[in-house]
Design a protein around this nucleic acid. Sequence first.
DNA 1: GCGGCGAGTTTTATCGACAAAATCCGCTTC
DNA 2: GAAGCGGATTTTGTCGATAAAACTCGCCGC
Lengths: 215, 215
Amino acid sequence: MQEMPENTLATLVQRRLRADLLRGVLPPGAKLKVQALAASYGTGPSPVREALASLTSEGLVERLDQRGFRAAPASVADFDELVRARCWLEEVVLRESLAAGDQGWEEALVLAQWRLGRLKRADAGWEEAHAAFHQALLAGCPSPTLCGMAEALREKAERFRALARRVAYPGRDVAAEHAAIAEAALARDVARAVPLLQAHYRSTASFVRAALAEA
Amino acid sequence: MQEMPENTLATLVQRRLRADLLRGVLPPGAKLKVQALAASYGTGPSPVREALASLTSEGLVERLDQRGFRAAPASVADFDELVRARCWLEEVVLRESLAAGDQGWEEALVLAQWRLGRLKRADAGWEEAHAAFHQALLAGCPSPTLCGMAEALREKAERFRALARRVAYPGRDVAAEHAAIAEAALARDVARAVPLLQAHYRSTASFVRAALAEA
DNA sequence: GCGGCGAGTTTTATCGACAAAATCCGCTTC
DNA sequence: GAAGCGGATTTTGTCGATAAAACTCGCCGC
């Protein structure tokens, strides 16, 4: 075979495929032909097929029995539903994160916010820092299950943001929103932090929705 | 090949595998050897492998890169975490179900409760009726995403209940609990329905936990 | 007696081949 | 000109084979 340094080819392909889906390289509804993907990733069909089956369970790929796989559709209605679900889910996850977060959680959050604050939205690494900030915010929640669900929704939201290319947020201070959220979270003020976080998501959503609709 | 009536073999195997995992036929931690499963389901290795990859994303199967697949572990701690996550998640799903459920939702809930009430726990079909009741309770929630998450957790909870074989609930009137939950839900009384539902889960959990620990 | 080494066996992960669908495309017909 | 039919082509889903790991287990030295 080949050298396989502790990682199986199928998981590797799955990672790359997911990245390509989240970054919009594979647009919604696109037919995902196994042979083409296999050629593009330099493997046989089997690992691709396995990866597609996994991503189907994750909701990023759709399977039409006997007609192959397609990138999951991404309508504006889907996006609205996603944002609503995210607000409702993270309401409880954030609440429990504030209730249970220890000192390590606080410090990780401060660090994530500081790292994010040093970058402008156009900078390389901003996406990663932004994801890390929101992850750190919820990381105090003692339920890996709920944290995992929140992460899955965040990934899907990032997909929509990537699909709405070059979306701008005129007249908005995103950094200040993040700072306010972090401040309320560190003060363990659920009644303030939760609405701030939801408003943050809904504000982003309105811009993304507009960019999606015109595209 | 063979006749394949609109359903692909891989999805069929996935369904059967999931059922076997949920019913405890494949116990937690069991090695899932591809060839053995393929023989048992009368197929080649490819569909089995696809099904296992899917179930890995669902969290019912664990993949150890280069060492194959295993049925997901199911410790008492895992169960406790699951119950906690379920209570938190369904708190918001039930709230939104009560907020948005229409007349069709009400009628489906009444019907599901009546069907469940006609059966004793030992009767055939009770499991299905019970699952249908809890599904109907939450079905008013306008977010398919959240409903799907709740369903995934319910399936995992049923797995634990199946693993704790012959669990009994002495001194408990489960039917009355269901009736009280349905009554509060139909009255759109969130403040009453949510704690009742959570108490219902936690009560079941304490019996299941005891049965798991002694086994 | 016990830990480690090594040949033999089992299992995994991947590939290439092949039959059954589905899809495409041009031709006929109304 | 549009609808419908039928054959060629693509694509899917599945199988069996195969190389490389992992695992087993007995043997040997200490």
